[in-house]
Design a protein around this nucleic acid. Structure first.
Length: 426
RNA sequence: GGCGCUAUCGUCUAGCCUGAUCUAGGACGCUGCCCUCUCAAGGCAGAAACACGGGUUUAAAUCCCGUUAGCGCUACCA
């Protein structure tokens, strides 16, 4: 039985964001790999900004990502008495004092060495530190105190958190020494910034996990990408499942420098995961995703559509924008191209002939037959297949990009194809 | 300002600890080619980096010092 115990300690003053997920993920990976426990702690001592709604959103996001935790989450707002007890102890030992209603920890003037697993030994001179407020005048503990008390009481063995906490660590160590507690081991993770190198914010697009979920990203895509921000296996492998990561993760291979978030690579990775999905799982998930967002599509048509788009989409959400012609009539927004096709007598004539040919065909289920008949019609007119395929694609979709034309015709069905053809020709 | 962390292609990174195997490898993106009815997917190829300056050494991306830059902390926020 491993005595490794780590924790993720979000503050319910906002949504779970990208940086938080990465911290949670690395804690999770370390715990699962070591056979330890991954615990949760809700840091809700900021009474003004903490809300139950944010707390729920954070837990839901973690569940969606598959980062399941052990034991019940610890809630700081329920431990106020314990913090007061510790403050009282410090007070009675003369290691803290009251100041304007607050309680301050008297910083011992000394050299403090912090051993960090990813950065090595870092030395601070506590002469530089101001005495630390540990309890606010409203009787609530301040972050620094609550953290060390909780980590101690929860039996936390490793504190894995963002690098922004590195300068706080010597203060925490001093507090632990004053209480006679053994310090946990520390590992400070590099920070994640936006493409321009500034802290991630709404300006950089989506930052909340829920937004990625709503756009149709896969949890494994997001996790895979985030794992690679600040860590790598030392091998060329880039595509990982969560179990792969658990197996290969190592704090020793955590990078020291900050990283920038690249939405493009996330999109690429997510596309890789969509293609790696079991076919049935893909069908079920994308169907569920679009369920209440669009008008119902006949099952046969829907299955063709999602199969055709599996190699084309990088998120489930991209389906509708890429196959817009499938949900509404084409708009022919490309005016020059529209004019060119309309002005091309040969093409228009051929489209007319094709209309005839297709009209005499049975249903459009057989892609082979569509292929054959369309090419025959082109040949009969002394033209190459592509001379008819391109105008036809434009008529059918209003654009120049789509799945193969015969798959497209089969997808849309005879009625719709002929209707669009007739509308364009009239 | 003070203190701390960091510094390899545009971005994520390998290599650095244990100096020579690095004319610096991979991935995203970008460009071109192949496939091909278009767009994807897939395959192939290409452009693209050791921040700067000093050392140490026969030899430095790798070790040391400095500079510069970025980031973080410096709250009765967490």
């Amino acid at each position: 039985m491993s005595d490794i115990r780590v924790r993720f300690a979000p503050s319910p003053t906002g949504y779970l964001h990208i940086g938080g997920v990465r911290t949670a993920l690395f804690n999770y990976l370390y715990a699962r790999q070591q056979g330890g426990k991954f615990l949760l702690r809700i840091e809700d001592t900021d009474r003004q900004r903490s809300t139950p709604a944010f707390e729920k959103e954070i837990l839901d996001s973690l569940k969606w990502l598959g980062l399941d935790w052990d034991e019940d989450p610890v809630r700081q707002s329920r431990r106020l008495d314990r913090y007061r007890e510790v403050v009282q102890e410090l007070l009675s030992k003369g290691l803290a004092y009251e100041s304007e209603g607050a309680v301050k920890f008297k910083i011992p003037k000394t050299e403090v060495k912090v051993y960090d697993i990813v950065r090595g030994e870092v030395t601070y001179d506590s002469q530089e530190f101001e005495d630390l407020v540990i309890m606010k005048s409203d009787g609530f503990p301040v972050f620094h105190l609550a953290v060390i008390v909780d980590d101690y009481d929860m039996g936390i063995s490793h504190v894995i958190r963002g690098e922004d906490h590195l300068p706080n660590t010597p203060r925490h160590v001093l507090l632990q020494q004053a209480l006679g507690w053994k310090s946990p081991k520390y590992a400070h993770l590099p920070l994640i910034f936006g493409a321009d190198g500034t802290p991630l914010s709404k300006r950089h697009g989506a930052v909340a996990v829920a937004e990625y979920r709503n756009k149709g990203f896969l949890p494994q895509g997001l996790i895979n990408y985030l794992a690679l921000l600040g860590w790598n296996p030392g091998t060329p492998q880039e595509i990982f499942s969560l179990p792969d990561l658990v197996k290969q993760f190592s704090l020793k291979r955590v990078i020291k420098s900050n990283a920038r978030f690249d939405p493009e690579k996330l999109l690429w990775l997510n596309g890789q995961h969509i293609r790696a999905l079991d076919g049935e799982v893909y069908e079920r998930q994308i169907t569920e995703f679009w369920k209440d967002k669009i008008e119902p599509v006949a099952e046969g048509k829907w299955r063709k559509l999602i199969a055709l788009y599996r190699p084309r989409i990088r998120t489930y959400g991209e389906l509708k924008e890429q196959a817009a012609y499938c949900f509404s009539e084409p708009e022919y927004k490309d005016l020059p191209l529209t004019a060119e096709i309309r002005g091309n007598k040969g093409a228009m004539e051929l489209l007319g002939q094709l209309q005839e040919v297709l009209n005499h065909l049975g249903d459009f289920e057989d892609v082979q037959v569509l292929d054959q008949k369309t090419k025959q019609a082109a040949e009969a007119a002394g033209l190459k297949p592509k001379d008819i395929i391109h105008p036809l694609r434009f008529v059918l979709t209003g654009g120049t990009a789509s799945p193969g034309i015969f798959d497209l015709m089969s997808l849309l069905g005879k009625k719709t194809c002929l209707k669009r053809l007739a509308a364009f020709l009239s």
